[in-house]
Design a protein around this nucleic acid. Sequence first.
DNA 1: GCGTCGATGGCA
DNA 2: GCCATCGACGCG
Length: 196
Amino acid sequence: MKLEQPFYAKPAIDLAQDLIGKIIVRRIGRKVFRARIVETEAYVGSHDLASHASKGRTKRTEVMFGPAGHAYVYLIYGMYEMFNIVASEIDDPQAVLIRAAEPLDAWSADLSGPGKLARHLQITRAENGVALTNDRLHLFDDPADRPQVVATPRIGIDYAQEWKHELLRFLDPTSKAVSSKRRLSGTDNLEINEHA
DNA sequence: GCGTCGATGGCA
DNA sequence: GCCATCGACGCG
């Protein structure tokens, strides 16, 4: 079943875990591409020093302050688009970064990293702010898919002081599409949850 | 199989 | 002057 807006209206730390195993449905012209999410990160509010929202409400971060279930897409390192989903509620800037997925059906692509994922699904800043309930880009739930979820620290946020240790990255430990050589490096997988 | 480095542009 | 990254390169 297609996921509707209320699904997204929860804290990012919960949404990030619930998104593991969900399916991205991306329609481009007459073609439909589907991919199963296997890795996410939660950015939990303006007090989270790793979050863009910690810099305050700006033109770029504006959509994070809006309603849940909308896309937050920005450019990083001058060449990579990052696909995030807004969580929580209006005026509470939380979001979930979609870091990796595995292609479904007879389609093959390397989606093992947020830059690669957005590029192959053709998600760009043109999608910034769109509601994720539209036909061209939305999510789908497979009720039979209830993966195990492991938590680790987030990637690429070493500047975030005490926040860099928080276990806010989530992944399906059985997937081979989790972003490069960071699947489960022994000591840093510090928590295992069984999904409901 | 690792560590290191440069590309490239928007943002504060 | 930073980056919520990636891929190429050098090593041995």
